[in-house]
Design a binder for these strands. Structure first.
Lengths: 176, 176
DNA sequence: TATAACATGTAACAAGTTACATGATTTC
DNA sequence: GAAATCATGTAACTTGTTACATGTTATA
């Protein structure tokens, strides 16, 4: 999604080749931004180079496979700043995924729907405890972690309204 | 994303051809699930037919273009139920999009970051008022709408913590 | 010394979107 | 009767993922 911003941001910190960037993501960001795949990184780096936002050079160490190292150009940096400002400002609608399921929920007996949502709540609660117990996040990821926590809470709170409501409606029309 | 579930769910209500389903989505769901495109619908219908989850027949009305009407099969209905239960149960991590930006936020002067986040808050607040003012949602979309409202609130609440914090840090290290 | 794991990457496929095609019907 | 719009759909492109290739170092 914001892969452009992510790759630019990482490249900005340090010259890198694709494999290396994949490692950085996997080890340093494994929790929140785990979902960028190697080929995506390679493609993005190539694309950035074509657009003049990054430069590439070939390197070789010992007789390991040669590798293509990328570094940021000035216009790359400008683009990064531009994208960053736009992304920070913009409100990304919080989900929509999973919402489709909610729209069809009355295809299920209310009692079962309530049960399934309760299961979801369970999983969330565990996830929440994991977060609360974790060491407070350091600088860069603190904001994102905090935001995640707020949304986890919101999801739980919402379920605490929705589940009883479904249960009530299950008890109400038991004439089926 | 959940396009499979969406298309199955719509088809379950009524036999349809692709164009018609695109219209239903556009007119009935324009708010929350506006983001499925016509070719996606066509492709999904074809795929469902190949998998035996839907059946197709050709129809023609007057001398308008002939059209391919799909209808649900029994195994389609089972698949729908299976998918639905899984989706309702599962907690979809609330976002991650936009989070990349937050991770790089300290590339900006704290003061500017605070200003941009305040802008984001503005937009959210407007969106929130829109929701609060809207007519209460009817059955099917009520759950989803309610959930959205909770998350909108959560995002605003989080910003109300994050913005002052950034501002404080801007005032703190004004030695730059 | 055979097997596993590391380092570096590409090819082939899947999913979705934008842009277009084509004929009928309405509108000016 | 020309221009717009409706009705129905497909082709071509973009983006991202899974699965594979290829040589090198570590391990049993």
């Amino acid at each position: 999604m914001d892969y452009r911003l992510l790759v630019l941001g990482l490249l900005r910190m340090q010259d890198m080749h694709g494999y290396q960037m994949a490692e950085v993501v996997e080890t340093h960001f494994d929790d929140s931004v785990h979902d960028i795949k190697k080929p995506t990184i390679y493609d993005m780096l190539k694309k950035l180079a074509v657009e003049g936002l990054a430069e590439s050079r070939d390197e070789q160490e010992g007789n390991r496979p040669p590798r293509t190292v990328y570094s940021m150009t000035d216009s790359g940096d400008e683009e990064f700043m531009r994208l960053l400002k736009a992304s920070v400002t913009q409100y990304a609608p919080p989900h929509a995924y999973g919402d489709v399921a909610l729209m069809f929920v009355d295809a299920l007996p209310a009692r079962e729907a309530a049960r399934l949502l309760a299961e979801r709540r369970e999983a969330l609660e565990r996830s929440w405890e994991g977060h609360a117990g974790a060491d407070p996040h350091h600088g860069a990821t603190a904001l994102a972690a905090d935001r995640l926590a707020h949304h986890l809470r919101a999801e739980i709170d919402w379920l605490d309204v929705a589940i009883p409501r479904l249960q009530a409606s299950a008890d109400g029309d038991s004439d089926e």
